[in-house]
Design a protein around this nucleic acid. Sequence first.
DNA 1: CAGTGGTCTAGACCACGCT
DNA 2: GCGTGGTCTAGACCACTGT
Lengths: 250, 250
Amino acid sequence: MTPKQFDNKLSGSSFKLQPLYKQVEEHVIQLIVEQHWKPGEMLPSEFELASQYNVSQGTVRKALNSLTDSKILTRRQGVGTFVSEHTGHQALYRFFPLVADGEKPELPKAEVMQLRLLKSVSTEILNSLGLKAKEKVIFLSRRRILNGEYCLLEDIHLPYKYFKELLDEEEIPHTLYHFYQTRFNLTVHKTVDKIKAVLARASDAKALEIDRGEPLLKFTRVTYSLDGKIIEYRVNRCRSDRFHYLVDLE
Amino acid sequence: MTPKQFDNKLSGSSFKLQPLYKQVEEHVIQLIVEQHWKPGEMLPSEFELASQYNVSQGTVRKALNSLTDSKILTRRQGVGTFVSEHTGHQALYRFFPLVADGEKPELPKAEVMQLRLLKSVSTEILNSLGLKAKEKVIFLSRRRILNGEYCLLEDIHLPYKYFKELLDEEEIPHTLYHFYQTRFNLTVHKTVDKIKAVLARASDAKALEIDRGEPLLKFTRVTYSLDGKIIEYRVNRCRSDRFHYLVDLE
DNA sequence: CAGTGGTCTAGACCACGCT
DNA sequence: GCGTGGTCTAGACCACTGT
């Protein structure tokens, strides 16, 4: 049999052909990105997909399992295969690394402090967001509360081109990543944090109700969507006396 | 066909039977832990393993691929399947998260400052290592150098029962985890870091050649071996002015 | 060339969740 | 009971590596 391909959009010229299961994976991702299947929706069964793509059920299975490993799909035996929705405990904690010392992880509340279009944008922010000069950026700052204490200040920078409608939003939910997914069709897939220790500036101290000069954890985060777009650049400052940043590596 | 099991050591009573590929995985891990196959060694081919275990080649493949995903094995097409050796760039960086700002990741040098058996051990250390009172603990402290600067102080606590021979060692290599693996048959499989920001104490400042009161990253690490033993408890203090702790989540 | 892992197929049976 | 995903098999062919 000759190698197959469902969709020749990508390979006008003679590129090396991907394995079939990879092609299925990529096509499924594309359909999710294009909102053909939305978060929470059920996909067709393995057999249906197999016949649509003209491959065997085992090949579809390999693709779906791989996407399940990378948290893009969720499978439930006896029920079906679903597009992951970033709700539910596991998904919500996945990208939130702060834990109160000696406590179980808990989701913080968020208090919006500012939301506006930036008039001028530093080149650091532009670079971090992968934007060209003069592209517009939305600024959102929040204060988060864990265990009844202010724990974290977030300065969030969002490319205006993806989040235009955000400025008209009345209420902004606490769980931003789920909000990005449902409201803007941007599924967070990867984050890169750079963590440093700094001293609290006067403004930090005031907002967190601590003393100036206390040590804080500062982490900058770049956030990527399913299709590899940079969708967010954050600078976070966090009290470190009763909270820590948790990293599991396995 | 009735469910199989190669080895009834584990299930004297009537426990729920694991899937075959899981049983293969666990048995392979056991053989590695028992040093039947040592780091770097090649495993038998899929067909050989399949006939030894009396399962199909596909089942063995599923097990081996899963162990490859979790970095326990390394497979090379056309060559064979090998027990991962914690050497080679990727493996060495896997558990070393510190990066100099604006530079490519680089492996630091290490300078041993102390190596001794602790006379008394705090309960915090005992608990972190999962030891009972009166169990002995080895203390190893090091200073690490990245880009020609002191960047990191490590206080490493090791259960004496696993590392007895360490005290007689003349030279301790820079890459400890590879050393644990080859010298003590302890393969590092998982680490948990808790990160905080603290101020440099006088002793930190002196050792790192910085000013007292500078903000430092402090991270405590608990390290687990392949078979789930706790093999290390570290308290690290790191300069944060020109270095950061990097976390990729995907 | 022989031997290895990588891909793909086709089909059997099981375990689970729903109705 | 029916449809779903989960496990397992057997066998074909491909791609890579080393001799």
